[in-house]
């Protein structure tokens, strides 16, 4: 195979066409999503402070009008770019090795790193269901506008709703486990000396995020919260 050799800088391929550029976009959008996922988790934990507290929080968010829509827009654009570029990269990677190995050891490589393309789309599918369930109320599950507390409790008492949620947030944890560190590396913020620390932080954020989200269906299923809801 012969390829022309790039000899001048203006012959170079555009930023969004080279893997490193695409990855930078994935990294920045991924960081936006991690920021959202962590903030959302912290917000949700207010459910442990009682019905008034979490419902007031929902009210607050809804009353912020244009701000809420701006945030939604940013998230939507981030998700869109994240998905477009990861899928492009994944397709390109399949072309990069047309003949597979008969035997291949995946040396040290993290399970999480190799399954980003599985955890990602599963999370996306879940997010759609999740929005229909708790934001728009169109999932065919019990729903009262702005009564977040009751909606969550009634939803999670249905075992398969809880199960789907728990699987999905675990996948978010797995995705972030590799994603946070990977994203820092992609943006060039890595060095042999602090890599173990960065990896540990990344694993911890993934784990804590998953645990934070998991605590809610577990609390509902064990009756820790939602006692007064029928």
């Amino acid at each position: 195979m012969s390829a022309a050799i790039i000899t001048k800088v203006d012959e170079r391929i555009a930023f969004y066409e080279v893997p490193a550029g695409k990855k930078a976009i994935v990294a920045v959008t991924g960081l936006v999503l991690i920021g959202y996922v962590v903030a959302h988790m912290l917000g949700n934990l207010q459910i442990f402070l009682g019905r008034e507290r979490i419902n007031a929080y929902a009210e607050l968010l809804h009353s912020s009008g244009p701000l809420l829509w701006a945030a939604r827009l940013v998230l939507l654009v981030a998700v869109g770019l994240h998905i477009v570029f990861t899928v492009q990269l994944w397709l390109a990677k399949r072309r990069a090795r047309p003949v597979r190995y008969l035997k291949k050891v995946d040396v040290p490589s993290a399970y999480a790193a190799r399954t980003m393309i599985l955890s990602g789309p599963l999370i996306a599918a879940f997010v759609i269901f999740h929005v229909l369930h708790l934001t728009t109320g169109q999932a065919g599950l019990p729903f009262e506008p702005l009564n977040v507390y009751d909606n969550v409790v009634r939803g999670f008492r249905i075992w398969y709703v809880s199960l789907a949620y728990m699987v999905a947030v675990s996948l978010v944890g797995v995705h972030v486990w590799h994603g946070l560190w990977s994203m820092l590396h992609t943006l060039g913020l890595d060095d042999e000396r602090y890599r173990p620390t960065l990896e540990r932080i990344s694993h911890a954020v993934g784990l804590l995020t998953a645990l934070g989200y998991l605590s809610i269906p577990v609390a509902v299923l064990t009756g820790l919260i939602g006692g007064g809801v029928n």
Partner: peptide
């Protein structure tokens, strides 16, 4: 800029920070 562009032309894949190369 030139080397990264050339690698894309040659059909190499992208890095997912999996770390197998290092190993």
């Amino acid at each position: 800029l030139k080397m990264v562009s050339q690698a894309a032309l040659e059909g190499f894949g992208h890095c997912t920070n999996a770390g197998e190369c290092e190993a």
